[in-house]
Design a protein around this nucleic acid. Structure first.
Lengths: 152, 152
DNA sequence: TTTGGTGCAAAATTTTTGCAGGCTA
DNA sequence: TAGCCTGCAAAAATTTTGCACCAAA
């Protein structure tokens, strides 16, 4: 389902920012491609289908905005691109329920993996250090099932 | 304590690679700066103190080598630099016991945090998906104790 | 009308690569 | 001596920025 455009518009207005086609389209493309880990270039190509005159710089400015508004997650798979994806939004408004990323070192595939047990780690960290955890990113590197079966 | 140079030399020779001053110095600098998250540029500056003619390209080539040999960890704090740090090496030879990174969104400070409970997650992932986990990187974003006390 | 947003191109920045010369084995 | 390694500079590649114009409020 497409993301709640109306909420996004409201959030923009509350911040004194303007609602533009470019912003709506970037949000829409991310909403239509959950679990896809899009680079700025990817988003650029996708938005261009509907809005050919958009510039790459606008994509960069918009994903930064969406990230600051905590509407998208940012991940870095260390391949030279920063990637963006829509948060799951299955819980309350602002608490995006995180999944982790299994990254295959053979084929480069990225597999999302959902697990909640980091929540308890976050609580423990806060108790032990006073550090307030707001977000996290967990990447697990290894060999995926298919690559293991091929080789071993 | 400085890292085991002899082991490093042996590992290089086993791979048919050459032992050079540059490689030894990069390893040494990383060993002398555990928990410091050095960028290539940082390492470059530090090695230059002992070996002014070294080139930045050699640093990049060497950290890549050390990373491939699993002698250093690589982390990306999303500030435009890739950083390197010496693994803890407190367990057996190859199993570097990972610590995580608490990243303060206010002051940018990076606090290492040691915890083992991801081991069980790794086992669970392997059982559930067939993905063999070899390594992981966990970053926790939030507000550090000092910044919280200042503001709240 | 005012102010923020966009597109384009140039700039900035980190990292990689080609090549000639040098050093390890 | 043979071949890997290094240093330098240029290239590559992603992301940021300046600026004139445009569009939303």
């Amino acid at each position: 389902m497409p993301v709640d455009q109306e909420l996004f518009k409201k959030m923009l207005k509350e911040k004194g920012l303007k609602v533009t086609n470019q912003r709506l389209l970037v949000l829409q493309v991310l909403g239509e491609n959950k679990d896809k880990h899009l680079t700025a270039e990817d988003i650029y190509e996708l938005v261009k289908e509907d809005y050919p005159e958009i510039g790459l710089a606008t994509i960069y400015r918009t994903v930064q905005l969406l990230y600051d508004m905590r509407l998208v997650d940012r991940i870095n798979l260390d391949d030279g691109y920063v990637r963006y994806e829509m948060g799951d939004m299955d819980g309350e408004n602002d608490k995006t329920h995180h999944h982790h990323h299994l990254i295959c070192e053979k084929c480069g595939k990225v597999i999302p993996f959902k697990d909640d047990r980091l929540d308890s780690l976050e609580v423990y960290i806060e108790e032990a250090t006073g550090f307030l955890v707001l977000d996290h990113e967990l990447k697990l590197y290894g060999i995926c099932k298919e690559c293991r079966e091929k080789k071993e």
